[in-house]
Simulated scan of single mutants.
Amino acid sequence: MYCARVSEAATAAFGGTFSDVPVPGGAIRVETLGHGWPVLLLHGWTLDRRVWIPQALALADRYRIVALDRRGNGGSSAPPDMTRETDDILALADQLNLGRFAVVGMSQGARVAMRFAIDHPERVSALIVQGAPLSDLPGEAEDEPPVARMAALAGARKIAEMRELWRDHPLMQVSGDAAKWLDPIAADYAGRDLGARAALDVTQADCARISAPILAITGANEPASRHRVARALERIAGAERLDIPGCGHLCNLERPDIYNAALAAFIAAHDGSNSGTVR
């Protein structure tokens, strides 16, 4: 396998180095920036690596930031299949010679991050999950993504309506100027994964097998189910918890100052690097 460089002009997110890593069915687009202990960033459903711009720009002076577009999203050509995503991570980690690294997962990306930590404990120095879901701690119906309605709209080629429906959902609400980061991503979501949503189950019993230190981050205003998951991770796996006030599900965009400081400190505490001062 090889790591093919791609045009920076076509893929600019936070000014890093871009490549396409071959995986079954296509390629995963990955962007790296900075030097130091590697930190892999996994975005949530319907998003792409641009959702990590506030983290990449703040932390690249002390960490090697590695952000990818998950299957079916952004610039990745690999077809959506959550069951293949842990293999994708392993492939790009080997291609980029990451060795051991910290893994940060947001929402659906947190599910992938937890599964990777369970299956490959030797590669994970620290696990940070944001608004994580668990298969056996489901949320209320009104809090869950309206996947069926979105799929119907996409099937009818009503893409603008599909995007509007999702952008209005509680999980996608942000305060302050966070919309400047979120709106362009939401406007690009094409719904490629709506017809092929392979399940990736992660349960409380699975989480008991995670050996890496865990930080579970929630926004104070996000759905109660995500707070139940954070408490479960604390009870089952000894996770540290951070609940960021005044924020919803996308607290990394709403309060990047608090989020970035916590991220830097937790990663440094478990890899021996100096966290320094967050910009």
Rank of each mutant, 00 (worst) to 15 (best):
A27N: 04
V104D: 00
S225M: 10
A198M: 11
D193T: 10
D257Y: 02
D48V: 03
A264S: 14
R71T: 05
M114P: 08
I258H: 08
H249A: 09
P79A: 12
A198V: 08
L242T: 02
P79S: 08
L153A: 09
I159D: 00
R157W: 00
D20M: 02
A60T: 13
N97K: 10
A199D: 12
G75K: 09
M162D: 04
H249K: 11
S77P: 03
R111I: 14
R111Y: 02
A93W: 04
P80S: 06
D201M: 11
A269I: 00
L90H: 07
V66G: 09
A178L: 05
T203G: 10
Q55D: 01
R111F: 00
R50E: 03
S107M: 12
P38A: 07
G238Q: 12
S135C: 03
N97C: 11
A186Y: 00
A179Y: 03
R163W: 09
P213R: 14
E144W: 03
R62A: 05
W181F: 15
G238Y: 10
A208D: 12
F101S: 04
I65T: 04
D119T: 12
D201I: 05
D257C: 04
L153V: 05
H227P: 03
A117W: 01
I217A: 10
N274A: 13
A152Q: 07
R228K: 15
A212C: 03
M1L: 03
R157Y: 00
H43A: 04
A9L: 13
E164T: 04
A205S: 08
G109C: 02
S19Q: 15
L165Y: 01
A13F: 06
M106F: 15
G191D: 05
V66Q: 06
P213Q: 14
A186G: 12
A151I: 03
A224M: 08
R70Q: 12
G176P: 01
L57E: 15
L200F: 04
A126Y: 02
S273E: 13
A186M: 13
L137K: 02
A216N: 06
D206M: 12
I217W: 10
T46R: 01
A93Q: 06
A60P: 01
A60V: 07
A27T: 15
G246A: 09
A268N: 10
R70K: 11
C3D: 04
A113P: 05
S125C: 00
L137R: 10
A187S: 15
L182V: 13
G15H: 10
R163S: 12
A268T: 05
Q55M: 03
S19N: 05
A208S: 14
R64E: 03
P79R: 05
L194A: 04
D61W: 08
G26C: 08
P133C: 05
G248C: 05
R167S: 15
I214R: 11
N221K: 07
D48K: 01
A56P: 08
A148V: 11
A264F: 07
D119L: 12
F18C: 14
V6F: 06
I28V: 13
I210H: 01
E234R: 15
M150P: 07
